[in-house]
Design a protein around this nucleic acid. Structure first.
Lengths: 187, 187
DNA sequence: AGCTCATAGGAACGAGCGTACACATGCGAG
DNA sequence: CTCGCATGTGTACGCTCGTTCCTATGAGCT
């Protein structure tokens, strides 16, 4: 056991997948403390890598943020589309939508916060706006598997409102209320 | 014309109402460039006052931002409640709601952007969250002048979604679509 | 084996930030 | 008129930021 004298615990040369871990850590930091707090230094500390590693893997902070939000949107959109694709009919699709909202999204404050952070960041940044619009259009296309386009669009807006409401209200709607609202609208 | 030798154009001692103007200018800066860009220096430049003036009138930047958002919420909530109070019945109230959305809010990118900026700032700041919740509850109370509480709550969520949608989409819903969505829901 | 270059690491720079503070100014009370 | 004090102004400090840059390392090729 007497070993390990000089090497100051640096066993981490050549770290494959570090780029991916940086993207994940970035999402963690944004979820925990907001886009404004997602600085190179904060992310480096959270990922336990040196500062220079970030600018090595990503040309700029904006590029890293875009990569992070893109991954998040891909995750959520894919999960949602899988649910819609698995639903056999319109009724099942609406139940799956309720489940997606009350289970996936509202169940984890993380996804909720990331969505709102992305919304506002997109208002100022063209690249992020493209990510948001991709999300909206994928979401609408998933809904259109079982809903007509007009209803899909309206349901999409309602869902966004419910997400925002749940993220900010001290008195958020519960699963039953959300189900009631959606069914009243499209049921 | 030969006058004005030494006094380097400083005709602005004792400026009543400067505090109010600073609040207004702060909202302008937030609307134009976002909360993150609303720094003491940016606001001072926009209002054409020296930097020290801001910390003189407001103890901190957070205090100034809270004052600005509070004023904005008061404005919008009062306008909305006036519309609802003036509506004689439920049908008229829904029409007034459509008018409020398509006219007041969606007509000015400014109000839209301020709303979204407030939403996300509130997610991180307890004081701003109180402002947002005040807004939500006043909005709901205005709706309850003509709608039952459950419907009011759901309409409120839908409205928030429509606002967000309109702020971010390249292909926003037009007035007719918004009217159709609201009437389908509560008409 | 020896070389090479993509990867890793850490220090440094200049800019912008919130805030503190010392000084200037002029209104209104006496 | 005089003067106290609320109001207005400008500078400076200490800090964090994004980014740059030089050096070190070691995996894979020859």
């Amino acid at each position: 056991m007497g070993a390990d004298p000089a090497p100051v615990r640096r066993p981490r040369r050549h770290d494959p997948g570090r780029r991916d871990r940086l993207v994940d850590t970035t999402l963690d930091v944004i979820a925990a403390r907001g886009v404004a707090a997602a600085t190179h230094r904060a992310i480096a500390r959270a990922a336990d890598v040196p500062l220079g590693s970030l600018t090595y893997h990503f040309g700029s902070l904006a590029e890293l943020l875009a990569a992070a939000f893109t991954r998040h949107v891909d995750d959520v959109a894919a999960r949602f589309d899988a649910r819609m694709a698995a639903a056999p009919d319109r009724t099942a699709a609406l139940e799956a939508l309720v489940e997606h909202l009350t289970g996936d999204l509202l169940g984890s404050q993380r996804d909720l916060v990331l969505a709102v952070e992305l919304y506002v960041a997109a208002a100022r940044d063209a690249e992020l706006r493209a990510v948001t619009q991709d999300w909206m259009s994928r979401s609408r296309r998933s809904l259109e598997r079982h809903l007509d386009p007009v209803t899909a669009r309206e349901v999409d807006a309602l869902v966004e409102g419910l997400v925002l409401h749940s993220a900010l209200s001290t008195d958020p709607m519960d699963a039953a209320q959300i189900r009631a609202a959606l069914l009243r609208f499209a049921g």
